[in-house]
Each structure stands twice: as C-alpha cells, then as structure tokens.
Design a protein around this nucleic acid. Structure first.
Lengths: 197, 197
DNA sequence: AGGTCTTGCTAACACACGTTAGCTTCTTAT
DNA sequence: ATAAGAAGCTAACGTGTGTTAGCAAGACCT
C-alpha cells in the first residue's frame, strides 16, 4: 500500500498542497484533476480526502498563504523610516524573491484566484485591492517629495506587479541568467523608470 | 427559432469566435463550457457545430489571429529607419493599443494558449519565442549604440511584455484614467527605465 | 411556388470529473 | 499483544462536459 512520505514537521496535507501548487501552475486549476494530483502524490484519488476537504480548499490554502505573506511585508515596509524610492525598491525585491523562490504558489495565487468560491473570492479580491492602494500610496508620497516622476500611481503599481509576474518566463527559459542578475536587472529598469531625473 | 444575427461581412462563425473570446477571458478556457457559449450567442449548444469544428478550434482561431498581427507589426517596425529607442517605443505603443482595443482576444491568446493542442501548441510557442528574440535584438542594438542602458535584453523584454498585460487591471478598474493617459504613463515608465542617463 | 442549402432543435452518447461509502491495512501507544 | 486511530484501497454515485445523429424550420434562388 502506497503511503505519502513525510519528514518531521511536514504534514501529509502540506505535501498535497505543495504538489497541488505545481500541478495547478502547470495545467491551471480547472484542467488539473484530483486523479492527476493523486498520481503525483503517489496515491489513489479517494485517499486524498483523508487529508483535505475539497479541491477548492487547496486553492484557498495556496492563495491566502501567499496573500498573508505579502500583507505582512507591506506592513513592515510602511513602518520603516526610509525614502519612498527605497520602500518601492524593498517591496519590489520582496516580490521578485517570492516569485523566484516560491514560484508555484505565487504564480497560482496570481493567476488562478478567479476560481475561488465566495466568500473567499470577495475576501481575496479585497485584500488585493487594498494591497495595491497601499503600494500606490507609497508611490504618491514619493511623487509629492519629488523623488518620483509625476506619473499615475495606480498605473505604476500595475506595471510593477505585472512585470514581476514575468519571472514566470525566466523560470521556463533554458538559458537563465542568475537569480541575482535577474533581480538587479529588474530593479534597474523598474526603479529607473520611476526616479525623477 | 433563434438565429444568430450577423451584419454584412461578418460570418456567424466570427460572431461565435468573438463571444468565445469574451467568455474565455472571463472564466478561462477550461471553465467556459460550450453550453455557456451557446447561451451567450443565443442558441443551443449543438447548433454551434454547424459553424465550428470544435471548442479548441475557437482557441486556435483566437491565438493565431493575435500572433499574426504582432508578427506583421514587428516586421514593419524592424524595416523602419529609426533609432532603437523609437522602435521599442513604437512596439510598446502597438502592444498597449492592442491590449486596449482588442482586449478579450489578446488576453486570451496571452493566458490560455497552454490549452492549445499539438501541433498548434508547438507552433504557437515557436512564434512567441521568435518574437521575443527579435524584440530583444532591437534592445541589444540600442545597448550597443549607447541609446539604452547596459541591461540584460531578454529580461527587459519580459518586463515590457508582462507590464503591458497589466492593462487587464485597468480594464477591470472602475475609475479608469483615459486610454491616452494610460499609454503615456506606461511609455514614460517603461521607456524611462531603459534610456541611458 | 418549389426545391435546395443553411441553420436550428431535441435527444443522446461516452467520458471525465469531484466526491462519498465501506472496508482493509498499517502505525502507534498502552 | 492488542486496541484504536490514521491512512490507504476499490467501487460507485451523480453531474457536467464536448460532441454526434437525425430531423424540422427558415432563408434564398429561380
């Protein structure tokens, strides 16, 4: 009888959630079946239900664990006593590193949240909207301080966030530059596009 | 008996493809059912098959019509006798306007191409890869001419293309700035991030 | 007006999906 | 060693899917 392998401190549920992230990223939430997931975990489909409540629960788990990390990070950065540009840069670096090191989760949370069911859906959308508002507020402060060009802050946020989701292509590409180089290049271009003069 | 309405020069198939784009964008290719599509067209599901071969054909149609437009555009721009920065700017403007005015199609082509079946899938991926190489080549020329900062060109391309796909958020947002303002802001930030000094 | 092609409908198919029920087997603690 | 709980299995369910077959109604041309 196949058994899900676990190390200490990693529950069988965690194993399933992690595998689910990989699968949802590859195929999309709807196209990934519980039988696919079962196979990648090494078990029959029905057995998964000893550990999880439903397929959608897996999506909740992924989306909100990511959302929470980002919320905590922006809390911390807002509180720091540094210039707006530095705040933006710190935030971008966090996004970039999340996208590099927790690729599957972050990607899924970014692209597949549409398939959440209410009330999770509205909740997630709210958090997202608030996050973007707070990001935009940082930029607006920077504009008032003349650290940042006179631009539309929400548009800038939208560019930053989506540009970073492009790291997906980096992951897929065969001849990757190093992670550090990637980070440096992205910061150069994105922050370079903001700074006044 | 319900009949699909058409104006002159618009085939019933075109009507279906257009509605499919809207639906695929809203729900994703897999989650959008032929019965959903039928309803939005105002007809029974089976009737669709008098005009199309399969659900996947709709996706082919959408993906390749977009891909072709972009290919023709980069052909034209490469041939022009203008600076690299101007080429990048023209290409970006084209992307932005496509994303603004042919939102549904472009979005679907961008996010749902994974669900194409071979040989269409490999074909599409190839075109995409080639397109990005050509875009990167323009940037590399600009770097050699010292018009553009010393950066990794493929990374720059990835940022540009994904940043533009962020126009999705603009479409969804309630208090939109105007399309022209959006274009100007995006160009300012993105081109501003490239130019040397 | 009649005949033909087009476009629609209803009914049904085969299949894949998420999930449940009920039973067996393995692990763990007394 | 044994009882209890955890984790696996097979079988099956109801439902939704893309698609086909066969027939009816509408449009179009002479």
């Amino acid at each position: 009888m196949a058994r899900i392998k676990t190390d200490k401190n990693i529950s069988r549920k965690d194993v399933i959630v992690t595998k689910a992230a990989i699968l949802f990223r590859e195929k999309g939430f709807k196209a990934a079946s519980m039988r696919d997931l079962a196979e990648s975990v090494g078990v029959e489909a029905a057995s998964l239900y000893n550990h999880i409540k439903s397929k959608t629960e897996l999506l909740h788990e992924l989306c909100f664990s990511v959302a929470n990390r980002f919320m905590h990070q922006i809390d911390a950065i807002e509180a720091e006593q540094i210039s707006s540009i530095e705040k933006v840069e710190k935030l971008l670096k966090f996004h970039i590193n999340e996208m590099i090191h927790h690729y599957e989760e972050v990607y899924v949370s970014d692209r597949e949240w549409k398939h959440l069911a209410d009330p999770y859906l509205s909740n997630f959308q709210n958090q997202r909207r608030i996050y973007r508002k707070r990001f935009a507020a940082i930029i607006e402060t920077g504009i008032r301080n003349k650290e940042i060009k006179k631009i539309d802050a929400p548009t800038a946020v939208l560019i930053m966030l989506h540009a970073i989701s492009g790291i997906e292509s980096w992951h897929r590409s065969t001849q990757k530059i190093s992670a550090t180089e990637l980070e440096e290049n992205m910061i150069t271009i994105l922050v370079g596009g903001l700074v006044h003069k």
